[in-house]
């Protein structure tokens, strides 16, 4: 299965800029479907970015984050060719992980 995570990490010397796009419904639990039944909550709770074995960014999310969430941040100390590990876990316990090379 293709990964749900798309990451782009670009180094411009000192700083590494990271953009991530994840495929996930991010159902808040407040929306009703066509039949008027509430769609149960299903959203990513925690998204972690690790570089060199240390977390460089941790996102704690609720159901208020948009569907197919996007996030952008930057950190110092990343090297070109280095591995950035990205993983998430949702409220149903599902997870996904990927590793991206810093470009």
């Amino acid at each position: 299965m293709a990964s749900s995570i798309r990451v782009r990490a670009t180094s411009n010397g000192d700083t590494t800029e990271v953009q991530a796009l994840i495929q996930h419904p991010m159902d808040s639990g407040f929306v009703k479907d066509a039949k008027g039944e509430i769609i149960p909550p299903h959203f990513i709770q925690q998204l972690t970015f690790e570089y060199d074995g240390k977390p460089v960014f941790v996102a704690d999310w609720g159901g208020g984050v948009s569907k197919d969430p996007y996030v952008k941040f930057a950190f110092k100390g990343g090297k070109k060719g280095g591995d950035l590990k990205v993983s998430w876990v949702d409220n149903k316990g599902a997870t996904d992980t990927t590793t991206a090379k810093i470009q």
Binding site: T15, K54, P55, V56, F57, V58, A59, D60, W61, G62, G64, V65, F73, A74, F75, K76, G77
Partner: peptide
């Protein structure tokens, strides 16, 4: 909505 942890070294 969201809470982001910013470790030292992250902008």
């Amino acid at each position: 909505i969201a809470s982001y942890k910013i470790p030292a070294g992250t902008l």
